[in-house]
């Protein structure tokens, strides 16, 4: 049901029945390693190309999420997925394996929450009983497509980010036990004229601001309503910018409750420069770390704002600036008193 101008409220509060996160070798060395369902020691994951490896990651995340939801894949009505590869091949090829009716989506790194919002909407409007939403990214595959060959020796600036090798999936259903999705805000594309593809955090921060601001306005919620506001992959640079933008625009989210997945996933590792990025960043941190901690009762209400930079290597070379988007999904634990 529409709420305000560009948000959805889900009166039936669809349940996240199962969620899973799969990671690669570099993620296994990070501080969140414990929260992954499976970690691979080999970046190739036994495949013969980066692209095939990414597909395997996504398939594993999907199977694991379905298994944890206590379902069989035949019971899942729809599969919503996307990734960073051209023609979203990781998602489509996983859908071939899963054989669940499939809708491909693209929102760059915001795909995780785009999928989760749509899944909740489908379930809430009784268009489906169970929907699977998933996304993935692979460091090698993304570097190859967006930048240089992985072994090419080019020096990256301190604003650059490290694409996460990982996949995350969640099964949303109409009944059962688990964390509940209460609302979502669909972002609009924001372009501040930033052109540096090695500074995505700064390009995406205004999109996150726009969505967060709209979310609170549409739902008429106090700014301290959520125990946690999480952005997708702004990294250290974008996190600092948004921390300044929020109070400047009178969105008084308590800043100690604002965190960023790109900052969390690798901790203080200086080798990832500004932090993690990619579809897999917000997906693995949310579906691995954050939902687990929420289930344990660390937080009751959380707003996940996945940010995406909608550029392509061609648009960048043709001198276009970087349009960005952010989608927000509100998740609550069942204990929340109404």
């Amino acid at each position: 049901m529409r709420q305000g101008h560009q948000s959805w409220v889900f009166p039936s509060k669809p349940v996240i029945l199962g969620h899973a996160a799969i990671g690669g070798p570099f993620e296994a060395q990070g501080p969140l390693a414990e929260d992954f369902d499976t970690l691979h020691g080999d970046l190739m994951i036994g495949q013969d190309s980066w692209e095939k490896a990414e597909k395997v990651l996504l398939e594993e995340a999907c199977s694991k999420a379905i298994e944890k939801a206590g379902l069989r894949k035949e019971q899942v009505n729809f599969f919503l997925a996307g990734d960073l590869m051209n023609q979203i091949i990781s998602a489509s090829f996983s859908a071939r394996t899963l054989a669940i009716p499939f809708l491909g989506i693209f929102g760059a790194c915001s795909t995780a929450m785009e999928g989760l919002a749509l899944a909740a909407q489908l379930v809430d409007s009784q268009a489906a009983d169970y929907v699977l939403a998933a996304t993935s990214s692979h460091n090698g595959a993304a570097e190859k497509q967006y930048r240089y060959p992985t072994e090419y020796g080019s020096q990256k600036p301190p604003t650059a980010q490290w694409t996460v090798t990982g996949a995350g999936a969640a099964v949303v259903g109409n009944k059962g036990k688990g964390l509940r999705i209460t609302g979502a805000t669909i972002g609009r594309v924001v372009d501040m004229g930033m052109t540096d593809p090695f500074n995505m955090g700064a390009a995406m921060a205004p999109a996150a601001l726009s969505t967060i601001e709209t979310h609170f306005r549409d739902f008429q919620l106090p700014h301290d309503h959520y125990d946690l506001v999480v952005t997708g992959d702004l990294g250290k640079v974008g996190h600092a910018i948004l921390s300044e933008l929020l109070p400047k625009h009178n969105v008084m989210v308590p800043l100690q409750r604002y965190i960023d997945c790109g900052k969390l996933i690798y901790g203080d590792n200086p080798n990832v420069w500004s932090g993690g990025s990619g579809c897999g960043c917000v997906a693995t941190v949310t579906y691995g770390h954050l939902l687990r901690r929420m289930s344990r009762g660390d937080w009751k209400r959380m707003l996940v704002v996945a940010t995406g930079a909608l550029l392509s290597p061609i648009s960048y070379q043709q001198g276009e600036s970087i349009p960005c988007i952010a989608h927000a999904v509100a998740i609550e634990s069942e204990q929340t008193g109404e």
């Binding site: 600036p157 301190p158 604003t159 501040m192 004229g193 930033m194 052109t195 500074n199 700064a202 921060a205 205004p206 640079v237 600092a240 910018i241 300044e244 933008l245 500004s274």
Partner: peptide, 24 residues
């Protein structure tokens, strides 16, 4: 390039630049 930007964009870019870690 800067001239084509709206004042809001210019203001934001200045803000963003302040947060950009300097290249050593």
């Amino acid at each position: 390039k800067k001239k084509k930007l709206t004042p809001v964009q210019q203001e934001y870019q200045q803000l963003a630049q302040r947060h950009e870690p300097k290249r050593p």
